[in-house]
Amino acid sequence: MRLVFWAGFWAFLTDQASKYIVVHMMNLQEILQIDVLPPLLQFHMAWNRGINFGLFANNADAARWILIALAIAISGFVLYWVRKDPPGKWGLICAGMLVGGALGNVVDRLLYGAVADFLNMSCCGIDNPYAFNFADVWIFAGALGLVFFGGEKREA
C-alpha cells in the first residue's frame, strides 16, 4: 500500500501545485489565456462545475456535492480493492494516481465550487475547445493502467 500512497501523494501534489501556480501566481483566473507553445499548448481558464466536457453542470450546487461524494466513494472502492486483492507494482501505482487525481479535483470543488481546468491542447488543424488539468490526466492514466495492470498479482 506504500506505492499507492506515494503515487497518490505525488499525483495530488502535482495537480494542486500546478493549479496554484497557473491560476493564482500566473493570474490565469483574470487574464484567462496564456499561449505556451501555440498552437499545441495554451493555458485557458475554465471552471468546470460538472464532469468531463462540462457534462452535468446544470444544477451546479447539487452536482458539486454529488460529484464530491462520487469521487470519494470511487477512491474508497479502489483503495479497498487494491488492499483486498493487491495487483502488481504498476497496478498499485495506477491506483494511487487515480485516487490522487480524484482527490485533487475534490479539493477544487470544496475550495472553489468547481474544478480549475487550464490545459488546452490543439494539433494538426483541430481546434480543441476543452480544457483539462493534471488531476484529469492522473485519473485517466490510473484508470487505463488499472485495466492493463489491475489483474496482475503481486509477487510474494
Results as ranks from 00 to 15, higher is better:
77 F>M: 12
93 I>W: 10
73 A>W: 11
153 K>M: 03
92 L>M: 09
77 F>E: 05
71 A>M: 08
53 F>A: 07
54 G>T: 07
35 D>P: 05
131 A>W: 07
34 I>C: 02
100 G>P: 03
27 N>W: 08
84 K>C: 05
125 G>M: 06
98 L>V: 07
96 G>Y: 05
1 M>A: 08
79 L>C: 07
92 L>F: 03
103 L>D: 00
40 L>F: 15
135 A>F: 02
32 L>V: 03
33 Q>S: 04
78 V>W: 04
71 A>T: 07
9 F>H: 01
73 A>K: 02
118 F>K: 14
95 A>M: 06
119 L>R: 01
53 F>D: 08
53 F>I: 08
4 V>Y: 06
94 C>A: 14
96 G>K: 10
8 G>I: 09
90 W>C: 00
134 F>H: 10
48 N>M: 10
11 A>N: 05
130 Y>W: 12
117 D>P: 07
129 P>K: 05
45 M>R: 13
15 D>L: 03
26 M>C: 05
18 S>D: 04
84 K>R: 13
82 V>R: 04
128 N>M: 10
21 I>T: 08
55 L>C: 04
122 S>I: 11
50 G>M: 10
103 L>R: 00
121 M>G: 07
64 R>I: 11
109 R>V: 09
111 L>S: 03
99 V>R: 08
25 M>I: 15
68 I>Y: 10
22 V>Y: 00
17 A>C: 12
13 L>A: 05
121 M>S: 09
71 A>G: 02
4 V>L: 12
63 A>H: 11
65 W>N: 00
36 V>H: 02
130 Y>C: 00
132 F>I: 12
38 P>C: 01
132 F>Q: 03
136 D>Y: 00
139 I>G: 06
139 I>W: 11
41 L>C: 04
22 V>H: 01
150 G>N: 11
55 L>F: 15
35 D>M: 01
25 M>A: 15
25 M>H: 09
145 G>C: 10
132 F>L: 06
64 R>L: 13
51 I>M: 15
17 A>P: 14
148 F>R: 15
69 A>T: 13
105 N>T: 07
44 H>S: 13
60 A>E: 14
40 L>C: 02
96 G>R: 11
133 N>Q: 02
107 V>L: 07
85 D>C: 00
91 G>H: 11
47 W>L: 03
78 V>K: 03
92 L>I: 04
78 V>P: 02
152 E>N: 05
18 S>V: 15
11 A>K: 14
20 Y>W: 10
70 L>C: 05
99 V>L: 11
33 Q>R: 13
155 E>W: 03
57 A>M: 13
2 R>I: 06
58 N>E: 09
71 A>R: 00
58 N>Q: 11
138 W>N: 07
